[in-house]
Computed example of a mutant assay.
Amino acid sequence: MRRSPVLLFALGLLTLLPAMGVGGYVLNILVMIFIFAILAVSLDLVMGWAGQFSFAHAAFFGIGAYTTAILQRDFGTGFGVNLPVGMVLAGLCGLLLGLPALRLRGHFLAIVTIAFQTIVYLALTQWKGLTGGQFGIEVQPVPGFASIGRFYYLALGLSVASIAIGWCLTHSRLGMAWQAVRDDEVLARAIGLNTTASKLTAFVIASALAGAAGVLVAHHIRGVTPDDFTVLTSATIVAMVVVGGRGTIWGPLLGAAVLTALPEVLGFAADYKLMIFGLLMVLMVIVMPQGVFGAWVGRTKK
């Protein structure tokens, strides 16, 4: 509850930014932060709360994005249809992957999710009749939200809704079940919890939210290509969760903000940007293994 005033102030400030005359460049970066916040918070349900590693989040991100692109191109549907359909399809793909994969643990699960990510990427590049191959598909802006100022509010609203969903879930009985599985799956099973169902629920919800982020990004960048949804994208989302702090909701949100904005800040060193970016990430993980938010919470408790 002590964080409520800070959160309300931050939300109020974000709401006022377009009216304060903030430029389109900054608003574009903030929109991408909102999109990656949805991805990081949703992946944290799987990694931080249920204790399962997944490197396939960009695949569900891409499924949502390509769903909206294909529906708009072939059927002329709008955002109001594309968003729920993209979420449902991404969630179903998460269910199909999770049913066999979540019976595995540790690096075996990670390998299966990487394989799924690779399969989705290859499908996007090779199924040219449906996906357009490497050329991708053009996406028209959301009617009424064509300007960056208006789309900013759409992205902010969906981001806040996703974070609220994550907070409510992690503070429910389901969230307690996820934590029990994360802390000791054998003990959780011994006391009667259906650990496979608990993990699968986290996986499906996270996949559906990633699909929503995909629908948003397709309309934001007004197109989709396979290279936007690679295993590198999945690794970046994982890094946001780890750097921010797993199992905290607010940590992945902070990680999404930092790791989305950092490449822009390092724009002055374009030739060395990836090297600096990588070194900073390694240092942060070494110095603060529990993540930025986790380290801050630990200090406040002392």
Results as ranks from 00 to 15, higher is better:
89 L>K: 07
203 F>I: 03
262 L>P: 13
273 K>P: 04
135 F>D: 14
37 A>Q: 08
181 V>A: 04
301 K>L: 13
243 V>C: 02
281 M>C: 14
275 M>V: 15
108 F>T: 08
105 R>M: 07
39 L>D: 05
30 L>E: 04
272 Y>D: 11
297 V>A: 13
158 L>D: 06
216 L>C: 03
133 G>I: 05
157 G>H: 07
228 D>W: 11
66 Y>K: 07
293 F>K: 04
79 F>L: 02
238 V>D: 01
284 M>Y: 08
196 T>W: 03
75 F>K: 03
224 V>S: 00
104 L>H: 04
16 L>H: 06
220 H>A: 06
5 P>K: 04
140 Q>C: 05
271 D>F: 12
194 N>G: 08
76 G>E: 08
230 T>N: 13
199 K>Q: 10
234 S>W: 15
188 A>G: 12
119 I>T: 09
251 G>I: 00
239 A>T: 13
274 L>Y: 13
229 F>V: 12
39 L>H: 11
300 T>F: 02
230 T>E: 14
203 F>N: 01
283 L>T: 15
283 L>P: 15
193 L>G: 05
247 G>I: 05
104 L>A: 06
116 F>Y: 05
21 G>D: 10
198 S>R: 02
10 A>P: 01
48 G>C: 14
230 T>P: 09
79 F>E: 00
177 A>L: 00
187 L>F: 11
180 A>L: 05
276 I>K: 00
45 L>D: 01
198 S>D: 10
65 A>L: 07
114 I>Q: 14
236 T>G: 14
175 G>R: 00
29 I>G: 07
274 L>W: 13
204 V>E: 00
195 T>Y: 05
173 R>T: 14
258 V>M: 14
239 A>C: 09
189 R>V: 02
10 A>R: 02
94 G>H: 01
136 G>V: 04
248 T>A: 06
186 V>E: 12
215 V>D: 03
110 A>F: 03
302 K>D: 13
234 S>K: 15
265 V>Y: 12
190 A>C: 08
139 V>M: 07
283 L>C: 15
190 A>K: 05
71 L>G: 12
156 L>C: 08
202 A>Q: 04
189 R>W: 04
6 V>T: 06
90 A>S: 10
236 T>A: 14
171 H>V: 09
182 R>M: 01
174 L>W: 07
141 P>F: 01
119 I>G: 02
228 D>G: 15
134 Q>N: 11
37 A>K: 02
300 T>C: 01
233 T>H: 12
37 A>G: 13
253 L>P: 00
107 H>R: 11
115 A>S: 10
23 G>Q: 13
289 P>H: 15
265 V>S: 14
278 G>A: 15
82 N>S: 11
221 I>N: 05
163 I>V: 15
271 D>C: 10
151 F>L: 10
290 Q>K: 15
264 E>G: 15
134 Q>I: 09
90 A>Q: 05
87 M>Q: 02
199 K>T: 10
78 G>V: 02
143 P>N: 06
274 L>N: 14
291 G>A: 14
189 R>C: 04
206 A>E: 02
159 S>K: 00
61 F>Y: 15
251 G>Y: 12
